[in-house]
């Protein structure tokens, strides 16, 4: 029996699709986004540009994203116009690719897709990589101001929590329990208190990915998010992690693969909530 299609199957492309469309550089731009800033330089898909989540997407002074004007400059420099189809891929189950995807959506970019399986699958298939950095003619780009409908701020999260609406904590179980103040491998990104936002369910982000770094099927995802965890696709839902990157992966899964109507990513996440004075915490 054929598996049930994703709610929006237009946001995922295969490595074969990329092979077929990578030559169309006037309309398609491949973007590699990794955790490791040097990884792109060791070899990437021919024609792909690099966007780094720290240096390109985060403001270095204020804790926020770069702002729509600087975002527009970034796109122009990478030869991305408002109509360009941007194809994100990267390391670690497309974790950072989803984060970049979310930031592009925040600034209203319409045609965003993820290459299913990311860097891992591309390399596992023995496909070509290069260290040659492409140069594209500057494009014209107009970015909208941030789309707040996909981003949650702390006061909104507090109101959401107090109204008893669904929250999804996508960190590891030990972070959720408050045993650990950080991801096992990321010591100093902690907070002064451990635990989770009261009422949040713990669904680690990586449960949505298969061994080969592709997303699980819709049926498998529904078994986790709907049947096991009881989330409601029609309910306003907030996802969070530690700084908002893992939860952008879950935001992608809930919004596009499962068709949830209203999911927001709380990028302040635990590094904000666990440091706030006076907010409720549960262990």
């Amino acid at each position: 029996m054929a598996d049930k299609a994703y709610a929006d199957k237009s946001v995922l492309v295969s490595t074969d699709w990329v092979i077929a469309h990578m030559g169309d550089t006037a309309n398609v731009r491949l973007i590699e986004s990794n955790e490791d800033v040097l990884l792109y330089g060791t070899g990437h898909i021919p024609g792909a540009v690099h966007i780094d989540w720290v240096n390109d997407l985060n403001d270095q002074l204020v804790r926020d994203y770069v702002g729509h004007e600087r975002f527009a400059i970034l796109c122009r420099e990478k030869g991305i116009g408002n109509d360009t189809t941007v194809v994100f891929y990267g390391d670690k189950n497309n974790w950072w690719a989803c984060y970049a995807f979310w930031v592009f959506k925040l600034y209203g970019h319409e045609k965003c897709v993820i290459m299913n399986g990311g860097r891992t699958k591309w390399l596992a298939e023995g496909r070509e990589i290069t260290t040659e950095v492409p140069n594209y003619p500057a494009a014209s780009y107009t970015a909208r101001s941030q789309d707040r409908s996909i981003r949650a701020f702390r006061d909104e999260v507090l109101a959401h929590q107090q109204a008893g609406r669904p929250l999804v904590d996508v960190r590891s179980p030990a972070e959720y329990d408050g045993t650990l103040l950080h991801m096992p491998a990321y010591p100093q990104e902690g907070a002064l208190r451990g635990g989770h936002i009261p009422g949040a369910r713990n669904i680690p982000w990586s449960r949505a990915a298969r061994e080969d770094a592709t997303f699980k099927s819709r049926t498998e995802l529904e078994a986790i998010y709907l049947d096991e965890q009881g989330l409601d696709p029609n309910a306003e839902t907030v996802a969070y992690c530690r700084i908002g990157e893992r939860s952008s992966h879950s935001w992608f899964v809930l919004t596009y693969l499962l068709g949830f109507k209203n999911v927001r990513n709380y990028d302040g996440s635990w590094t904000e909530w666990g440091n706030l004075v006076g907010v409720p915490i549960e262990k």
Binding site: E35, D36, V37, V54, N55, N58, Q60, A185, Y186, P187, Q188, E189, I243
Partner: peptide, 14 residues
């Protein structure tokens, strides 16, 4: 520190 950002520097400190 500046190039990698605070989030990425900790493993290197370790």
């Amino acid at each position: 520190t500046h190039l990698l950002g605070m989030q990425r520097i900790h493993g290197l400190s370790a």
